[in-house]
Amino acid sequence: MSKYNIKINGTTKVVDVDPTTPMLWVLRDHLNMPGTKYGCGIAMCGACTVHLNGMAMRSCQLPVSAVGSQEITTIEGLSEDAAHPVQKAWLEHDVAQCGYCQSGQIMSAVALLKNNPNPNDEDIEAAMSGNICRCGTYLRIKEAIKTAAKN
């Protein structure tokens, strides 16, 4: 076990865990932040997507020991009340079905829009194809990203 000070959503959190523990489980089990979801554990589904210094990152592949002083943002850090433009767009298009993958989808979308404020279909597909939605809400996700881009 080792102690880590990790910057998450603007505050520093202290955890005492095995250095190999993925951030996914640090968030879920140790920091009571279950918005970041477990889907596959091998970076194939995107459900656990967070931002590391603003870049989309699969937290199941990010050991706590590798974070250092880098900033992590999770779905809980976007806004408390769905005020973020991407969250708003998700609500406007009523995207979710089961909703399980959507925090990962939203985190990927936010990272995409940060780098490319006006993505076309191909840009969206390229950035989002690592995020599986088993319910098949892909079309609404694409529309929501376009709406968020406008705002």
């Binding site: 279950p34 779905i75 998700w90 925090s103």
Partner: peptide
């Protein structure tokens, strides 16, 4: 009418079984 849980979903609230926890719970 919009999904009544939409806001909770997009803000990552603990809605799912896998999110459930109580004090003293083991995995």
């Amino acid at each position: 009418q919009k999904n009544v849980e939409g806001k909770k979903i997009v803000t990552g609230k603990p809605l799912f079984g896998i999110d459930y926890q109580v004090d003293g719970m083991l995995i």
